Simulated scan of single mutants.
Amino acid sequence: MAYCQLQKVETNMHVKASAEQFYDVYCKRTYHIPNICPEKIKSIEIHEGEWGSEGSIVSWNYIHEGKSCVAKVVVEGIDDENKKVNFKVIEGELLQHYKSFKFVMQFTPKEKGSVVHLVMEYEKQNNEVPDPHDLLQNLVEPVLRKVDAYTY
């Protein structure tokens, strides 16, 4: 088996909503996202902890490439001052292809709106596994756009 190293895909997205509004939805009121974007996110359920607290375990039930998928995540880090939240995938379809997978989101205020900086850190199961660009373009970015339209 070939050695696979930690890799990342990242993007910046300019949005109209404030950094505070985005951070609030993704960190503290995550359960609203299925109402905002039901065609992509079917439900978000908390299993342990409380919304907006480190160590909480949350399941994201989503549609990707026409299939129902689940990503059970632990909220690894919350930084209120820098409006940053980290999610580590601990169960689900992503781990069929990746040894590890994390989402890091930071929301930075700008003169008009804010910038969402998203990093997906992952380690592939093997070298045949593609980088998760499709996940970014067809799931994550459309959901961010819908949240922006909702919060703005």
Rank of each mutant, 00 (worst) to 15 (best):
T30H: 02
P142H: 13
F107Y: 11
P132K: 01
E123W: 06
K102V: 02
S114N: 07
K83F: 09
V70K: 08
Y26E: 01
V129E: 04
I63R: 05
E39M: 05
V58H: 01
E81V: 09
F103H: 09
F87E: 07
E20H: 06
E91P: 10
T151E: 13
W51D: 07
T11P: 11
V9R: 03
Q21C: 05
H117Y: 09
K8H: 14
V129Y: 03
W60K: 04
W51S: 06
E121W: 06
I41P: 09
E65P: 00
R145P: 02
F87T: 02
E10G: 05
C4A: 08
E91S: 12
L94T: 11
I57W: 05
K146M: 11
E76Q: 13
K42S: 14
V129S: 00
V89D: 04
S114T: 07
C37D: 08
V104N: 12
N12K: 14
Q7M: 12
S114L: 04
L139I: 14
A149C: 08
S43C: 08
H133T: 08
N138A: 03
V119G: 02
E76I: 03
P142E: 12
Q7F: 01
Y31R: 11
A2K: 12
E91C: 12
Y150D: 09
F101E: 11
P130L: 07
I63S: 09
E20Q: 14
C37R: 01
S53K: 15
S56N: 05
A71R: 02
G49E: 10
G52P: 01
V15P: 06
Y23K: 04
N12L: 06
F101Q: 08
Q21I: 03
N127H: 02
N127C: 03
P38F: 01
Q137Y: 05
D80F: 04
Y150R: 01
G52R: 08
I90Q: 13
F101P: 13
V9T: 04
A19E: 06
Y62C: 08
Y3W: 07
T108F: 08
N82H: 13
V25E: 12
S18T: 15
E76W: 00
K28P: 00
S68M: 07
P109T: 05
E81T: 10
F107L: 10
G113Y: 10
Y3I: 11
V89Y: 01
Y98E: 07
V147K: 05
K99G: 04
E141Q: 13
T30M: 15
V58Q: 01
G113N: 06
S53Y: 00
V140K: 01
S18L: 07
G55A: 04
E81G: 02
W60F: 13
Y3C: 06
Y150G: 03
K72Q: 11
